[in-house]
Amino acid sequence: MLSGPILLACLILQFFLPWWIIGPVAFLFALWRASSGKHAFRAGFSAAFILWFCMAIIKSFPNHNILANRVGQMFMLPGLKLNWLIMAFVAALIGGLAAGLSAFAGYFWRFLIRRDT
């Protein structure tokens, strides 16, 4: 399992570093351990997806989702009570894509470094 360590590292590092740290983290873990491009992307994507989704709703629940619902409307969603869920999915997707693609690239660099040595 590669996504577990990525998730844990991102979970901790994001407290101190900007959001894009999930990219380098996923990249490095994939460089180290990924067995295929697909494996790397899945691991990076799922780790950030789960982390961002959970963190988003952890912050949103005590707020009764007031803000996430409003932000949904800002992004042209109708005034639904479940906007917050869509917003959490969008957040998860953004994080997932950034980390997934980074991990994918990490796998190819692993490949490159191995061949050279």
């Binding site: 994001q14 407290f15 900007p18 959001w19 988003a56 949103s60 803000l67 957040a91 953004i94 994080g95």
Partner: peptide, 9 residues
């Protein structure tokens, strides 16, 4: 959308 420092905060 970053749940740490984005609007969720």
């Amino acid at each position: 959308f970053d749940p740490y420092r984005g609007f969720w905060n």
